[in-house]
């Protein structure tokens, strides 16, 4: 939910000396992404995507570095990043399993599927396994209603996933 206020007052930022937005990544973004837009701020979503792609999530220090890179206030970067569900402001598992729960998927048996995956992994939706391997989430419509139920595992969409064949999506993961 995009509009839930997230209390960050008093939060301390963990810092490391090595930057998240590396000089190599900066150079790539400056060459490929920034020229596409008339303002630097417009590059924010692509830059957030790029940094998250490298580090798997967006630590607060990374948001500060992105703010400096795009001449924005860190609060502006946080404002945008916290709005979108795909941007992770907390660590997530190596494999993010998003099970679609919208209407076509629910009609075709998503509820049973989610329960089975949840029991198999031993976590409820919204949680990550203690070994940091899997994070289970529910998602709203993934645009695959004709092959419902469906689930997105990291960047790969799995279609026609049923309670009796769901293990195949886990078998493909290391």
């Amino acid at each position: 939910m995009a509009w839930i206020a997230k209390n960050s007052a008093g939060a301390t930022i963990e810092r490391r000396s090595e930057p998240y937005l590396t000089p190599v990544l900066k150079a790539k973004l400056e060459a490929d992404v920034l020229p596409r837009y008339p303002t630097k701020r417009a590059a924010l979503l692509p830059v957030l995507h790029a940094v998250q792609h490298e580090h798997h999530w967006l630590p607060a220090q990374a948001l500060e570095e992105i703010a400096a890179f795009l001449d924005l206030a860190p609060s502006q970067v946080l404002d945008t990043a916290s709005f979108y569900e795909e941007f992770w402001l907390n660590p997530k598992g190596k494999y993010l399993i998003m099970v679609c729960q919208s209407l076509s998927c629910e009609l075709m048996g998503q509820t049973g599927l989610l329960g089975k995956i949840s029991r198999k992994l031993g976590i409820a939706p919204g949680q990550t396994t203690p070994d940091g391997k899997y994070t289970l989430m529910t998602a709203e419509c993934l645009g695959s209603c004709g092959s419902a139920p469906c689930a997105l595992v990291n960047e790969v969409l799995h279609e026609n996933i049923h309670a009796d064949n769901f293990e195949r999506i886990l078998d493909t993961l290391e």
Partner: peptide, 29 residues
């Protein structure tokens, strides 16, 4: 003329045309 792909980040409201524009500008949708 140029044509670019701009990826959203998981927000239904960005399909509303002015929400889309806000998102394109790097803001919340």
């Amino acid at each position: 003329p140029n044509c670019y792909v701009h990826r959203g980040a998981g927000a239904y409201i960005c399909g509303e045309e002015t929400g889309l524009l806000e998102s394109l500008e790097g803001k919340r949708g």
